Computed example of a mutant assay.
Amino acid sequence: MKALFIGGTGTISMAISELLIEKGWELYLINRGNRNDDKRLKGANFITVDINDEKAVAYKLSGMHFDVACDFIGFVPSQLERDYRLLKGKVNQFMYISSASAYQKPCGNYVISEKTPLANPYWEYSKNKIACEDYLMKLYREEQFPITIVRPSHTYDERSVPLGVHGKNGSYQVVKRIKEGKPVIIHGDGTSLWTITHNSDFAKGFIGLMGNIHAIGEAVQIMSDESVTWNQIYSCIASALGVELKPFYVSSEYLAAHSSYDFTGSLIGDKSNSVVFDCSKLKSLVPDFVATKRADVGLRETVEYVMSHQECQREDPEFDRWCDEIIKKLR
């Protein structure tokens, strides 16, 4: 089997690429080559080109055909329009990574399935994902373009700790605050339910959809069945660091109104909502799918990796100052 990934080395896609290589797929990656020396990608074929240089990409793909192609880095419809021009007639299945954040907010029902409406007025990212899905479904209906839409929730890997409130440089500054015994901002009261999925589990579900004739024309969500509270997530991180957690609770509305960060989108349009995902559709398509990385285990492994790899420790002094200012003001 032959696959083409646009991207292929990110948080979600790296685990998929690694597992595909193990399974003997002939894998091609279109990217700029920033992580192509990763040992986990040994055996992959690299097409080093800027995907936005459509003419150059078309030249490199000339005469090629793939069982599956996937765009991991498509965020707006114009990027998928480009993909369609490049891949029409060259793929048996085109897969697109959308987002569970596209589901209706506020939630009409805390149990989320593929039947849940797509309607998120709070986050531009989510609105763009919905527009991308609409474009692809239109292609499927009118042009028989063989699409499969995949909706992940909060997927993480060993390089970044999954959190709710963090700055532009990622989550390390929050981990550092916990380690140093500083108070840490948690949105709401920390009791809402959330789902985090390790990328190794996501990869198993995703690969089960690749080349799957029953997945054509379908949207499928992939995530763990496990639900945890934000208090549990932050407590697991503190436990992995061997320190006491000092939570400071702030409403999502206040955070959205008093910062330059897009907490309207990422919190009110996503993480402040209490959700439980129904993955029965995925399991009907991929009967052997089971997410086996428990949240507390995955969080501990990620914290240990981040704390032992300096390249993962991207400090964010601006966010640190903002936290101190918010906490001082509210106290």
Results as ranks from 00 to 15, higher is better:
A219I: 14
F289V: 08
K271H: 14
Y28M: 08
T9I: 03
F319W: 14
D320M: 09
V184D: 07
M210G: 09
N231Q: 10
Y172R: 02
S113K: 05
T116Y: 06
M307V: 07
Y103G: 07
S239T: 13
P152K: 09
E22M: 08
T9F: 11
T48Q: 09
M64R: 11
L139K: 15
G8A: 07
L61A: 10
H309C: 07
V161C: 14
W194T: 15
V175Q: 07
S13D: 13
D324H: 01
K168S: 15
I51T: 10
I326Q: 08
K55W: 11
S62C: 04
V275R: 14
F202E: 03
D201V: 06
K60G: 00
P77Q: 00
A131V: 09
T155K: 06
E143N: 01
F277Y: 15
F202S: 03
W123R: 00
D201I: 00
L285T: 10
I47L: 15
Q93N: 08
A102Q: 12
M1E: 12
D262M: 02
A238G: 09
Y135V: 07
I97S: 12
P106M: 06
V161S: 06
S308W: 02
D316L: 02
F75I: 06
S13H: 01
S99K: 02
W25E: 11
E180I: 12
Q221I: 13
V306Q: 05
T191W: 09
D324R: 01
D270Y: 04
D157I: 03
I185F: 05
G164S: 04
A102S: 15
D157Y: 03
V286W: 12
F75P: 05
A240V: 02
D37V: 02
R321V: 15
E180T: 04
S272N: 05
N52Q: 12
C132H: 02
E54S: 10
K60I: 12
Q144G: 00
L241N: 05
G188Q: 15
E124H: 12
S224I: 08
R159F: 05
V243R: 07
T191M: 13
